[in-house]
Simulated assay, not measured.
Amino acid sequence: MSILLAGCTHETTDQQPALKQEKAGFNKDAALTEVNTLLATADRQTGRLAGARQAVRFTREQNVFFPSALAVNFQSTPKTVTLPLYKGIGPSGNPTYYIITEAANFYVAKLLGVNFAPKLIFGRDTEGAQDVTLEGGMIRFEGDVDFSPVREVKAGPDPNTFPPAVAKPGAVGDAQYSPLLVLPSGSVINAPIVANSTGVHDHLVSIDYDRGTVVFELLDGFQGGAQFYFHLVTESSDVGAATIERGTYTPRLAQLPAFGQSYPTDESALLGFSPVSNGETGFNSPNRQGLNSTILDGNLADPINIFPLDPENNKQFNNNYSPMWDAHLNAWTPQAIAAGKRRRIRSLEELQQLVKEGLVTNFAGNVGAPNGFVAGLKPTNAIINCPVIAQPVAAVVTP
């Protein structure tokens, strides 16, 4: 279901810069050895991963991008995915549990059975990433997450309610924590911590430490005019976004390059997308959409954000996917609201047309230069780590 956005044809005839840069600080053989070590250790601990690396078990209609997903449930409320769980070592030496969702190298991604996200290589050698080591076949983390806080969010003043008046996230990463890991080989992976001695991630449904599996909630969105763009929310660099979307507040992510740069030729680990700040509310409304709805209508009221493209895990070159989504918040104008024009925005093309018509504009907190990739909107300087899992056809999804 990938789309070609108007004005987004910036492709090279060779390799995109991210792949060229990888060669300078990356040892492919060492990276694949690292992966085999991690998988072999997990096999010994759980006996589970060998089966996870078998052929894809999903149908074309389910359209699951994530190769190592163990199961998906598009009929439950909330929708869920079962993923392999890895055991690592926290900074204090205590067990730390994490998932792996993306890799910056094509061959590493294939071996792990995760999404290929070459743009993530630009996070290496920046303060937005976390350098880790291997110890006993496991990753030893420098940073950690506190899952013990009690999440609290209170609506801002009418009529928009967003941004919230109170935003206290349910999980907080320390100054060293980032889910973007740089392994000793120079390989870069997206590996969010989801459980440790302080508790578990707020989107976690269940966890089986012995079998090495975790069930995570899927959030919804729109891409290319179609709904059911199912993804995880694991972290955010912004305290408000982390609280509203129940992610881990991770300030270090804000140091990844570069806000407002979303084209394949940009030296950026980020990819632009557009949350709605002030859409229609009411849990059962067919037009419900927006961060204000999630605040008012409850945890299960996904913001239903607008995304530009699918993961393309078999596309080695000119691949623009990244799970580090650069938020370009949009807002319906007071005139559009008064005229009853608000509806669900289903694609970046539709958003671009609404901006052109003057019905939708930048959220008041947006800063910097307009980004042509995201309808000419400015970035909000907030990153949300949202690994994409699937975009099934409507027939296999129970509302």
Rank of each mutant, 00 (worst) to 15 (best):
L70E: 09
T161E: 10
M324E: 14
V200F: 10
W332M: 04
L270R: 07
A55F: 11
K315P: 01
F216C: 07
I337V: 15
N196D: 15
N371I: 08
L5V: 05
T380V: 09
D14F: 09
Q223I: 00
N284V: 01
G137P: 04
S236T: 06
D302H: 03
Y229I: 00
L296A: 12
P387S: 11
A129M: 12
T9I: 13
V397Q: 00
V81S: 01
E357V: 04
E349Y: 07
A226C: 10
A301W: 00
F106L: 02
A117N: 08
E350L: 00
D310M: 02
V56R: 14
R44D: 12
Y209R: 15
L112P: 05
G290C: 05
T96K: 08
F74C: 00
P387C: 10
G282R: 01
D174V: 09
D220T: 01
L183P: 04
A30Q: 13
P370D: 10
P399A: 13
N313Y: 10
V182Q: 10
A50M: 05
K168M: 12
E217I: 00
I304Y: 02
T9L: 14
P257M: 08
A390S: 09
R48D: 04
L271Y: 09
G340Q: 11
F273R: 02
G224N: 06
T80R: 05
M324P: 07
Y107E: 14
G298K: 09
Y321L: 06
P311Q: 06
V215C: 05
N287F: 12
N313H: 06
A364I: 13
T361D: 13
A69F: 04
N284I: 04
T46W: 06
Q15K: 15
G298P: 03
P303D: 10
E267H: 15
T250W: 12
S76V: 02
N287S: 12
G93M: 10
M1Q: 06
N305I: 00
T380K: 12
G143V: 07
L377F: 01
T126S: 07
E245W: 03
Y209G: 05
V166L: 13
P95I: 07
I89G: 04
W332D: 02
A42F: 03
E22A: 13
D297R: 03
F307Y: 11
D158W: 15
Q261H: 13
Y263V: 07
V153F: 11
G272F: 02
P159E: 10
P286V: 01
I189S: 06
G123Q: 08
N105S: 11
V214F: 04
A394W: 00
L271S: 07
A55Y: 11
V64K: 03
W325M: 15
L112H: 10
V150E: 15
Q62S: 05
S187L: 10
N319C: 09
T248Q: 08
Y97D: 14
G212K: 04
L270A: 05
A104P: 04
G368W: 11
G137S: 04
V233H: 09
D302A: 07
F317Q: 12
P334I: 13
A390R: 00
L329C: 12
A375E: 02
F228T: 00
G199R: 08
N362P: 09
L32T: 07
T361S: 14
N314Y: 14
F230L: 02
P157K: 09
G240E: 15
A167I: 03
I389N: 01
N94P: 08
A338L: 13
E267P: 03
V367P: 08
V35G: 01
